[in-house]
């Protein structure tokens, strides 16, 4: 029989400059408590930062808040951390966001945050609708060594 250890945290943060650092640190602390390696923690923290920036850039919402939920689970030989980053803004088009390029010589140097999120996390699911807000759910896994 395997035991399951689960830790949860919820945060509501104002959309102010650099607030993504507070969100990333909170997620990082939870992942470290769970025993995740520093490389996995760093990757997840960078993804959380980009998700919060995305909320700030595309949110344009009246409540001016970012809602975060972290669930860390340790079970048997594996660990995982689920992160939800939600805003109540006007939504965005993920395909349009993905099509942007940031290389020298190209017009769009910004807007690669989504690609970074997808590269740094193992699973990413985006629910977004016009004026219905956005939730980015992302998962990072690690097998226990």
């Amino acid at each position: 029989m395997t035991t399951t250890d689960q830790r949860q945290m919820e945060l509501t943060l104002p959309m102010v400059p650099d607030i993504e650092i507070a969100a990333a640190r909170a997620a990082g602390n939870l992942a470290r408590e769970l025993g995740m390696s520093s490389e996995k923690v760093d990757e997840m923290m960078h993804a959380v930062i980009e998700a919060c920036i995305n909320a700030r850039e595309h949110g344009y919402c009246a409540d001016n808040r970012i809602y975060l939920r972290f669930v860390g689970t340790s079970q048997g030989e594996g660990r995982r951390i689920d992160v939800w980053v939600t805003d109540r803004g006007k939504g965005f088009d993920p395909d349009d966001e993905r099509s942007r390029r940031a290389a020298p010589g190209t017009a769009h140097k910004r807007g690669r945050g989504l690609q970074l999120i997808e590269a740094h996390m193992d699973e990413v699911d985006i629910s977004t609708s016009r004026d219905g807000g956005t939730t980015i759910h992302m998962v990072k896994y690690e097998k226990k060594s």
Partner: peptide, 16 residues
């Protein structure tokens, strides 16, 4: 220890 995509876009402008 941390960079974000906006910071990187500025680094790209410097490289350019």
């Amino acid at each position: 220890k941390i960079v974000n995509s906006i910071g990187i876009s500025i680094l790209i402008e410097i490289i350019e």
